[in-house]
């Protein structure tokens, strides 16, 4: 981690959103957009700049599902587990993806940092159930076999 660069980027983000507490979530989101996760080194820096304890910022970051404290894969695959998708059998899709990538509920990112597989609360694409997204692109009406196909295609682009 190049902390000098991290601080510079964080400074720019703070300049945009402000250092008041109310900016906390937007600031964390912006940092995460930059790094795809929240590097640990950003916490003491934000603590100093925003005048809030590190433990507090850690508490905010761990409260919200979207913040990741670990690097994510190049492809982030999200399987929707909303009601509609669930009723139309989204779990077997998740199982298949995890099986093929050797992932689980606890280990969500492959060691080569190529894939992350996670579930997501309803995407609001219930008409397309079951839905899967890859880096926020929606793939509708999935099946376990289609998921395997998708993985194959993604692997080819690596």
């Amino acid at each position: 981690m190049n902390t000098q660069e991290l601080y510079q980027k964080t400074d720019a983000i703070l300049a945009r959103y402000g250092t008041e507490e109310r900016s906390m979530i937007a600031v964390l989101q912006a940092v995460q957009e930059e790094y795809a996760y929240l590097p640990r080194e950003v916490f003491p820096y934000l603590s100093e700049r925003m005048g809030l304890s590190e433990a507090h910022i850690y508490g905010v970051a761990t409260f919200y599902e979207n913040f990741s404290l670990e690097p994510k894969g190049k492809y982030v695959i999200k399987v929707c587990d909303g009601t509609a998708c669930h009723v139309r059998k989204s779990l077997p899709i998740l199982d298949r993806l995890r099986e093929e990538l050797g992932l689980s509920a606890d280990k969500i990112t492959t060691d080569d940092l190529n894939f992350t597989v996670q579930t997501v609360a309803c995407l609001g694409a219930c008409g397309l159930a079951p839905a899967v997204t890859v880096n926020d692109k929606v793939y509708p009406a999935m099946t376990p076999d289609k998921a395997s196909e998708l993985l194959k295609t993604l692997k080819e682009t690596l």
Binding site: E20, I25, Y64, E65, N66, A121
Partner: peptide, 21 residues
């Protein structure tokens, strides 16, 4: 940032204030 509970009024305002929802 991904928390269903933020649909609850006081959790939502807490979240806008930059806190845990």
């Amino acid at each position: 940032a991904g928390a269903f509970v933020c649909g609850e009024g006081s959790a939502l305002t807490a979240s806008i204030e930059g806190k845990r929802g």
